[in-house]
Design a protein around this nucleic acid. Structure first.
Lengths: 226, 226
DNA sequence: CGATGAATTGACCGATGTCAAGTGGCGTGG
DNA sequence: CCACGCCACTTGACATCGGTCAATTCATCG
């Protein structure tokens, strides 16, 4: 359990003693598959680190359009805004499979940050990194075609949750065409078409709520083609 | 000069004494119109607050496509990443008109943050806010049409630098069609077409590197129409 | 007054969204 | 255990926003 903390961004570079203290302050929370962990718009009261399982972070735009921000796994965190008083969660987080979470109350974490500035800088690094990621997403939407964005996304997901079998890499999430579409900013129809073609070409195997990457090379080529 | 600090986000809620100290630590930097203040990709060594004038923050994507992030004015800051060692500026900043800047070395500001956690929380608030802004831009690109985004942008710019004359609100920046296009993620051609039409309809006056808003009501209507 | 760069306008087209109809696989309840 | 129904997915037809490119025109400054 300590190693989950040690691998996290927020508690990166802390000594074992500090980690022990932090772990001592944490609550645990188990959530079953598909359960919503925090809801967009709710007051941000707690900060979470995933100990086990995977979750997806998603928003809904004012006009009801869903936007999938990212998938996270063990040692990754969300809800950092909870340390700032008066904030609400900017997105909902939903368990993809059964999850174990470590949870700190925002106010408590704020106190810990006051005491140990290393955590403060880690927090800023996380926020900067997220901001940068978001800018890349914006740029991708602006300059890349759906094919390219899809290829990139699959590669990234494979890195996060890829499970190698004999013939390829299975992306081991309940990943529907619609999820993929919301992730890269397109429609499930376009995703379906592209995956069907890639399936024919032997690049991927397109299953029900699953994608297996058969030919990573081709995918990388598509992802990095101008 | 103190009031510039007092109005800034990063030093918000600090007592006058602390502000004095902070001001004492600051360098000054004057930059002429059009000069580039910091360059995307350069090591982030300093943190800036605009004391006077306006600047534009812009990125270039890997494939050379320009993206204009935002315009800033007095008391607004940039280069917060400078407090994190090893980071580079994620964007370039260029003076639109002659600017006076207050500058702190990143390392110094990091020390100040260590000593006063209020600044740390302010920094996190800024980063969160920027992240949120960026997400809204993404959502806008995804769900809104160019017309809508343009209307929104003009309204926002009017709030930042609008100068009321007898017949309308002049946006007082050297604002070319291309700048507007890069700001909302489209081409100068599309912007030109829309502004021409709006000019005909009496909604705006479209000049060379300038836009005057004549009928704010119509603009608001376009901005908030589904 | 000429040069330079901003802006306009037209013609064209293509990637991708929209909508409708249908297929197929999986789980559940009878 | 089977059948039904749901839901993910597929595929086709079609529409359209807005991008691309080229040819001008216009304004400002030296």
């Amino acid at each position: 359990m300590i190693s989950v903390l040690a691998d996290s961004q927020i508690f990166h570079n802390l000594d074992r003693g500090s980690l022990q203290v932090l772990l001592h302050h944490a609550h645990r929370r188990s959530v079953p598959e598909q359960q919503v962990i925090v809801r967009q718009g709710d007051p941000a009261l707690a900060f979470y680190i995933v100990a086990q399982g995977h979750a997806k972070i998603a928003q809904v735009t004012p006009d009801g359009h869903p936007v999938l921000i990212r998938y996270i796994g063990p040692s990754q965190e969300f809800g950092l805004v909870a340390v700032l008083s008066g904030f609400t969660y900017p997105a909902s987080v939903q368990a993809v499979d059964a999850c174990e979470m470590l949870v700190w109350e925002g106010e408590l974490l704020a106190q810990l940050i006051e005491r140990d500035s290393r955590i403060a800088f880690n927090a800023m690094r996380i926020l900067s990194w997220q901001h940068q990621e978001q800018q890349l997403r914006y740029q991708a939407l602006l300059t890349e075609r759906v094919e390219q964005r899809l290829a990139r996304s699959l590669i990234k997901l494979a890195k996060l949750v890829g499970r190698d079998s004999d013939d390829g890499t299975l992306i081991d999430l309940r990943l529907s065409r619609e999820d993929l579409a919301d992730l890269i900013g397109t429609t499930l129809f376009t995703v379906s078409r592209i995956l069907s073609r890639w399936d024919l070409e032997g690049v991927v195997r397109a299953g029900r709520e699953s994608v297996t990457i058969l030919d990573m090379q081709s995918l990388v080529r598509v992802a990095s083609s101008t």
